[in-house]
Design a protein around this nucleic acid. Structure first.
Lengths: 345, 345
DNA sequence: CTGTTAGCGCCTTCAA
DNA sequence: TTGAAGGCGCTAACAG
């Protein structure tokens, strides 16, 4: 029942009858390079197992000035309902490179943010991922200039820092394309409106939608403005329908809006997709919960997180620029197939 | 344009014309205790600012054997849809104590789990929070025995480790109480069934429901078994209603089930709460998205996370035992008020 | 009140 | 192929 003292590398070396140097080489996978005898290696590894030796990273970090740790600064990503997938993707990518994530959630407070960045820097993280819940333009704190940094789901026009974000423009095109392919040519409306000043998603999605429709000589008949919430969308669309609107196709700027739209349509006896085709954005679980499941252009959160970490680790890091990841469409049953296609044979 | 060498404590000391010891005392807030002159302190702080000094935690950790870092081992918490709030709560509580969180998401793989625990231990984390997405019984890996550990949202019957989880039994009572208070005395059914073998939530909620109803001389008329998903609940309840069932009150074991139930009820022309009162569990955002908003017994995720960290930091840690946090009810409009109450005046 | 000294555990040149 | 020695940056006795 002795007090369990920490087992150090020299304990292992002693036990194996070698010097700490030799043990260090072996444990760092340099035994071949150092041409260490198989026998020695076996003895050292045995000693490690018997003693339950575990390297002390603080010591190693002090010596090597690396920590195998990546810092994540985020506003609300961790708490976010599905943006937390960014963390998962990042975590998996980090692990693939034997790194761990230290997270600092700022809850949107610049003071907290500055504090947490300082905290990460003191901890000697090998790099920092600066993530935002909402795709937006930001100005990163200057303190980050001193450490390898990648922006996740945001861009800073004032720097050349690498950034990873979804291809919202392409996503907009994809959404519109789904309606075009279904043969819809009129009565097309967008539901939702850009909520925050520096958010990018809404603007770009709308732009993509217009571009794609334009290629077909089409356009949207209008935008039903509403907040990006279920209740907000319901209220706006309910009033709009009560006013006599009879749309053919609705593009909802996110899945929550789609849910509100479904509720409003039901209220007015309109059925999806029989009376109205609906397409949406996010590709969240909510999309699959609706009846019928809504076709949604997916925000590839996990991929974004993983890619950000990959860029961070990449030697060519500095010249990466802005990476835009595709937004795949997740097909539901909310778009009425083109009539001609049904009896195709 | 010199190469920016790391600024060390002795650089600061030199600049301020004092020894490193003195500088260290000052920066660790021990200047009063050490009765250091105000003038000296001022000079040191000025030097820190001028040089942009930032302490190196690796060195400090090596010396003090503490890291101001808490490790979190979780299966799917980070990616989880709303359980990620546990992380937020934990993060906030940790920050309140100047700690940061290092997360290791295992994705349910025991091999990965063992690896990540090792990784955390090597990094000398001050403590470990072992969290699960689903409230369940687990067996924690033995490696955790060597470090201060708290279980979050799970218990390990084979150990005396402190655990923090929701009071599901009380939650069940609360849910049933909502229906009792509304004057419902018959036609009460539970929707959902325990999905996984070691999950605790379903069993305890049901038990709480039965206990509360029992106090009123009531009972549930039956359980409509179904998976804890929207589609699963819809299918089960739709079939059940088609069979002629006409319930008065439904207690859904989670919010997704409630959504499926709403869909099925609508399909059969039944209105909430006019025809059927509905109560549910989770208190997720989804609950507020339904029309009418469903009354839901809330899983206090953020509190759970915060409490786990608090327990971990507590000196009396070892004797904490199992902490059960209350599940508050979030009132919606899905329970029909007792008729007598309407014309109360 | 402040400075001197001695490591924390590990990696890595250098010498053997 | 292995060992001895030094130091990463910081803290904490112990002296003055």
């Amino acid at each position: 029942m002795s007090v369990t003292r920490t087992v150090t590398l020299s304990d292992v070396a002693e036990r194996a009858g070698v010097s700490a140097t030799t043990a260090s080489y072996i444990l760092n996978g340099r035994s071949v390079e150092m041409r260490i005898s198989a026998d020695t290696e076996t003895r050292v590894r045995a000693a490690v197992a018997e003693l339950g030796y575990r390297p002390n990273r603080s010591a190693r970090s002090l010596r090597t000035a690396t920590t195998s740790t990546i810092g994540v600064i985020s506003d609300f990503v961790a708490s976010g309902h599905f943006a937390s997938q960014m963390l998962t993707g990042a975590s998996a990518a980090a692990r693939a490179d034997a790194h761990l994530l230290v997270i600092g959630e700022t809850e949107g407070d610049p003071g907290v943010e500055a504090l947490l960045i300082e905290e990460l820097l003191e901890r000697q993280v090998d790099g920092i991922v600066y993530a935002t819940l909402v795709t937006a333009e930001v100005t990163v704190p200057p303190a980050l200039g001193r450490r390898r940094t990648v922006l996740l789901n945001c861009v800073d026009p004032s720097t050349v820092l690498p950034a990873v974000l979804p291809d919202e423009l392409g996503g907009g095109r994809t959404a519109a394309g789904a309606l075009v392919r279904a043969g819809l040519r009129s009565g097309l409306h967008v539901v939702g409106e850009d909520p925050t000043p520096n958010a990018l998603a809404g603007v770009l999605r709308l732009q993509g939608i217009r571009a794609r429709l334009g290629e077909e000589g089409l356009g949207i008949d209008g935008v039903v403005p509403c907040p990006w919430t279920v209740a907000g969308a319901y209220a706006a669309v309910d009033a709009w329908l009560a006013d006599g609107a009879r749309p053919q196709g609705l593009i909802c700027l996110n899945d929550r809006i789609a849910m509100g739209v479904y509720q409003a349509l039901a209220e007015h006896g309109l059925e999806v997709p029989r009376d109205v085709s609906v397409v949406s954005f996010d590709g969240s679980e909510l999309a699959t919960w609706l009846r019928p499941e809504v076709t949604s252009v997916t925000l590839p959160y996990a991929d974004l997180g993983a890619e950000a970490v990959r860029v961070l680790m990449d030697p060519g890091w500095a010249t990466t620029g802005v990476v835009r990841l595709p937004m795949p469409i997740s097909a539901g049953a909310s778009v009425r197939p083109r009539p001609a296609e049904v009896p195709a044979s």
